[in-house]
Write a protein that binds this DNA or RNA. Structure first.
Length: 293
DNA sequence: TACCAGGTAAAAA
DNA sequence: TTTTTACATGGT
């Protein structure tokens, strides 16, 4: 299946940024494993056209309810996102001009499953990304599904009836384990309807998510930004955000959450996208990946 | 060896 | 109402 996207769009660049935070179901280049209608499904994506950008997507098995599936894919890949207005705004800024030029065509792919996104966000609370990632990998191997070569993230039903002490074994605190079991139960029992969340404004959705135990403001905003494609949402208290915004747009040092909000104010409605660009840019220069295409 | 890492809820003041 | 504390593991 082909997906034609709004230009500019650099799939390889976007995928590289995505695989750094998506976790184990997006390890190889362009391949992804996910649940679709309770079926382990593998995706392989590559870019076959530049202008207009065209993605070739190979899905196995053929998904049921394919119209909905392809709509989901377009959303996950931000096929319809037009970066040009954001670039036009950045053009006038001495630092950002260079940042967006280095990252032209970068789109922030969404974690394809909202439950996985919530689990990921909770796992990363007050913890190094590395420690959180390893705990999640243990979660996948203990409670996820292995189907052939595919390794799939646990579904809500896989966690809903567990004793939190079982999840504690993966390396989560007992409290986080309780949050995760509680969240899984809400999803598994159909108490939440992520489809209905799509039309809610950012603020209302944050309010809704923070009503869940274990989900504070940071976690909710993080989920909106990474899992729901909300381009204007920034978790301003986030340590990484406070550092990176200070580095590129502040005095070079760690900012307070309030300072982050002030500095980002003029960049609405692209505040979240801007932070994604800054974080990606920082990571690339830190890792010295610039030459590696 | 400590101490910090992309927070949160619950206890204590 | 506001402030303090416990919590998990990996990297430095």
């Amino acid at each position: 299946m082909r997906i034609t996207c709004v230009s500019p769009f650099d799939f390889a660049l976007s995928w590289k940024a995505f695989s750094l935070y998506a976790g184990s179901n997006a390890s190889e280049r362009g391949s992804l494993a996910l649940w679709w209608e309770d079926t382990p499904t593998s995706l392989y994506i590559q870019q076959t056209g530049i202008n207009p950008p065209v993605l070739e997507v190979i899905v196995d098995p053929i998904p049921r309810h394919s119209v909905r599936f392809w709509k989901h894919m377009r959303e996950m890949l931000h096929a319809d996102l037009d970066l040009k207005p954001f670039y036009a705004a950045a053009e006038g800024h001495p630092v950002l001009r260079g940042v967006v030029k280095d990252l032209e065509g970068l789109k922030p792919f969404r974690v394809p499953d909202i439950f996985q996104m919530l689990v990921t966000a909770v796992s990363e609370q007050q913890f190094s990304m590395e420690a959180a990632k390893q705990a999640r990998e243990r979660l996948v191997s203990s409670f996820g599904t292995r189907a052939g070569r595919l390794s799939l993230f646990p579904r809500p039903g896989d966690l809903a009836d567990r004793d939190p002490r079982e999840l504690r074994e993966c390396g989560f605190s007992l409290k986080k384990a309780e949050y995760l079991v509680d969240l899984a139960g809400r999803f598994a029992r159909g108490e939440v309807d992520p489809e209905a969340w799509k039309d809610l404004p950012d603020e209302e959705l944050v309010r809704l998510l923070t009503s869940f135990r274990g989900v504070g403001e940071w976690t909710a905003e993080y989920v909106l930004a990474r899992g729901m494609g909300r381009m204007d949402v920034v978790p301003a208290e986030d340590l990484g955000v406070r550092r990176v915004v200070g580095k590129y747009l502040g005095n070079g040092r760690l900012l307070s959450a309030q300072e982050v909000r002030e500095v980002l104010k003029p960049w609405s409605p692209w505040r979240g996208l801007l932070c994604f660009y800054l974080l990606t840019h920082q990571r690339r220069t830190q890792m010295g990946l610039d030459q590696a295409q």
